[in-house]
Computed example of a mutant assay.
Amino acid sequence: MAEPTNSGVPTLNVVSMAEDVEDLKAELAALRIEVDSLAHDAAAPTAAHPGGTDEDQLPPETEDGWRYPPFIFLLEGEELHAELRLLAEWVEGVLVPGCLGEPSADSRWCHLWIEHWDAVGALHALWLAWQELTNPAVCGYTGPSTWYRDHYRPCMAELRGPAGPFAGCTKGEHRVEHRLPGRVPSAWSAAEDGL
């Protein structure tokens, strides 16, 4: 960065240039890590998709070509069962042993959580966020902190709280409270009714 002087001869701000160069080096290193990770992820099979990058295993595309994550409420049949198995592996293998404390009257947990469909939806959303935010190539190294603060804590407060889906469950007893709401008018229900 040249700065004019009284004599008309520009001087260089070496400190500023050195800082700019270091910033560019850091950005380049981060981009290299991201590209390497993306190349590795594209070539490697995953637990969710053991066959690798087969086009059939990717979520369906919308009309504009955008792919959405396979949220569990949108799946049916074998896709639903496969996603439930993967979710159960994560909940039982990562979430329960690593994050949950002992259940209590103020912080309930049901060992039959998979029978509480509203809990399944919340846990699936939590798992999707975990998959994204624990990948340093995507989120850097603050992703887990963001997941814990923005996703885990609010989700667990709702699930394990006194009004959550496990409210009727105790250590020795399991109870699914079915609170089915009335039908809410919507564009979908109007189309189903032939309106």
Rank of each mutant, 00 (worst) to 15 (best):
H111C: 00
L84H: 07
W127P: 02
G143Q: 12
E115G: 15
E92K: 04
Y152I: 01
Y141K: 11
N135C: 08
L133P: 00
L159H: 00
G143R: 01
P154E: 15
E89T: 08
E89D: 11
A163G: 10
P165F: 04
T170W: 05
V138F: 11
E92V: 06
W113I: 01
M156F: 10
V94H: 12
L133D: 05
E132G: 11
M156T: 04
E173H: 14
T146N: 06
W117P: 13
E158T: 04
L95R: 03
W90M: 09
L112I: 05
L100V: 04
W147E: 00
P103L: 08
V138M: 09
G140F: 08
C155W: 02
S107D: 06
G140R: 07
E173M: 13
G93T: 10
W130Y: 14
M156C: 06
W109L: 01
R149E: 04
R149L: 05
N135Q: 09
L95W: 07
A125V: 11
P165K: 05
L86M: 08
N135K: 13
T134A: 09
L159V: 02
P103G: 13
G168Y: 10
A122T: 08
W117V: 13
T134P: 08
T134K: 00
E132F: 10
L126R: 03
H81W: 15
G161E: 01
E158Y: 00
G161Y: 04
W130F: 13
W130P: 01
G101N: 09
Y152T: 05
